[in-house]
Design a protein around this nucleic acid. Sequence first.
DNA 1: CCCTTAAACTAGCGGTGTAAGTTTTGCCGC
DNA 2: GCGGCAAAACTTACACCGCTAGTTTAAGGG
Lengths: 221, 221
Amino acid sequence: MPRPRQPRLTRQLIVETATAVIDAEGLPAFSTRRLAAELGVRGPSLYNHFATKDEILDAVADTVTGAVDTSGFASRDWAAALRDWAWSYRRALTAHPNIVPYLAQGPGRRPAGLAMADAVYGGLVRAGWPPARATHIGAALRYFVAGSALGSFARGFVEDPELYAAHYPHLRQAHRLAEHQQSVDEGAFALGLDALLHGLAAEYDRTVGPLDPVESARPSG
Amino acid sequence: MPRPRQPRLTRQLIVETATAVIDAEGLPAFSTRRLAAELGVRGPSLYNHFATKDEILDAVADTVTGAVDTSGFASRDWAAALRDWAWSYRRALTAHPNIVPYLAQGPGRRPAGLAMADAVYGGLVRAGWPPARATHIGAALRYFVAGSALGSFARGFVEDPELYAAHYPHLRQAHRLAEHQQSVDEGAFALGLDALLHGLAAEYDRTVGPLDPVESARPSG
DNA sequence: CCCTTAAACTAGCGGTGTAAGTTTTGCCGC
DNA sequence: GCGGCAAAACTTACACCGCTAGTTTAAGGG
């Protein structure tokens, strides 16, 4: 089959379909031939639109990251902005958990990931955090969000009561974690995020706040 | 070549060599044939000792997890134990960063991972945390540690000054992150862990401490 | 000493990413 | 209108992947 009258593939269609395949069947099941089949096409045709498989994965990852909202850094105080951002980030990743192991390796050259890092870092510096501190805070929050989306804590435990009863006395109820997966994971995230922000606020008051307490509430800078 | 006078493979040797290959060349480069070549053997011979490739990876992951020290939960107060554990956990993972994406998906049936979860959860409950809270805290710390080991924040940025200068005004210095990778990642981890523990201590004082403030310092329960 | 089992082998299946070359179509300049 | 070029699909092929099946030989127990 030669060139069709109307192109059957576009970058956008490929990315959308790739996302659907990864969401439905996981990263290991995602192959160029599998994706092409889903698009009614043969594997190599994809290479008319992307140079490598990784380039497709990068596009998927960037689309996912693009859904993260960092607008709080322009309008709210740093702590509220961090909280909003972290939740938005988590929602974006948990909506497509199977791509997270790929995405979490770093922003690389993906524009959405870099724009996000830029917004967070800029917002923290504007609020008065020293640049090195701002880097650390952005990284720490990223660790937490990526870790929470990567391995759903609850899903990671096997549903086999006997396994725990035999050897792990404190984990007798662990086989029930899967039932409450979402509430366990979200509860852990909420608790951890609150604790993190609480600790950061204390640090801020101790080191930054006294110098110019008003600055942190002003959006522009 | 038939059965040799002295077996050339043992489970331990396979796991050690697999760890070395993964450390040196990354997860994608790790194949059964590659591993077998390193052992002076043909790929399928491995299947005399392990049923699947994943079983080898599980063994590697479990060995890494086995290096984590949870002894603090038996001798120190909960906050100090958490801190010691988190650092030990981080050291174990960053010593073998390439296996982290596999390992972080959950403990599954791996004994070392389950023993670790058991020790942490048991220690927190013994300190007076309500069971649901103990689960959340263990999960939150795991998120943070796994995230920090997974995507080294600093290494994730490309060393290309022009990329940042052109489009991401606040990241002008980002290309230099790689130079200071270790200090950036460790600084971010230290800051985040301190903030987390600070916030948890406040929560503890608010909800658990008043009931039986002495209990938390006693190791036995 | 035989016989079972262990531990290596070879051969091969179906799958992978991707390079190379082919074919047909759409479109642009003459 | 038409020649020619680029685009977008195709087929073929290569080297590698995890893993199965069956074979060979040595080790070790009855």
